[in-house]
């Protein structure tokens, strides 16, 4: 009986607080190409958050993004990025991020350990983020870097950087 109660205690807040929501601001990313910074976005994405700053162990953040909505300002490049050598969206239509553990780092500042899946590669990454209350809303901002080659996105290149900087902002 105790176990069942504990289960409900854990699961109920999640059910009541976490809804799938559409990302308002596109996910932004940037990387270097021939010394020039290329800015890109992924506009279609959604997330689900259970957040209680006082009980970080119970917090949960998940999200998925649709790489088919990538925009780097050059249409043909975007088309190429959907292909087999990059995101291969026919086979892997979603990028997913799932929190495993969140810890405080300072005031309004946190670090989450997430499983990030791009294509068929799942990799644990650390994502630093902030949570700031603005009016009625909590604003989450995350910025992190990843190596695209770790996820089989493209190949090693003389001109294109391996490192991609990703910026996510959401409100709850």
């Amino acid at each position: 009986m105790k176990l069942i109660s504990l289960f409900f205690l854990l699961i109920l807040p999640w059910h009541f607080n976490a809804n799938v929501e559409k990302g308002e601001e596109p996910i932004r990313f940037q990387l270097k190409n021939a010394g020039i910074t290329v800015h890109g976005t992924i506009s279609d994405w959604e997330y689900e958050i259970y957040w209680d700053a006082k009980k970080l162990a119970n917090c949960k953040v998940t999200g998925t993004a649709n790489p088919a909505t990538i925009n780097t300002g050059i249409k043909l490049r975007d088309k190429h990025l959907l292909g087999r050598q990059y995101f291969h969206t026919d086979q892997f239509p979603l990028i997913s991020l799932q929190s495993k553990k969140i810890r405080a780092k300072g005031k309004n500042s946190y670090v989450g350990v997430f499983d990030l899946q791009i294509r068929d590669v799942i990799k644990e990454i650390e994502v630093p983020f902030t949570v700031v209350v603005v009016g009625q809303l909590q604003v989450f901002k995350a910025e992190f870097s990843l190596n695209r080659l770790d996820f089989g996105v493209g190949e090693s290149s003389l001109v294109l950087s391996d490192e991609v900087k990703v910026m996510i902002e959401l409100k709850k």
């Binding site: 190409n33 290149s157 001109v159 294109l160």
Partner: peptide, 15 residues
Amino acid sequence: QTIFAEQGCVTCHTP
């Protein structure tokens, strides 16, 4: 040359 890089020409026409 900067435009060449900005326009992404370098991806295919790589120096």
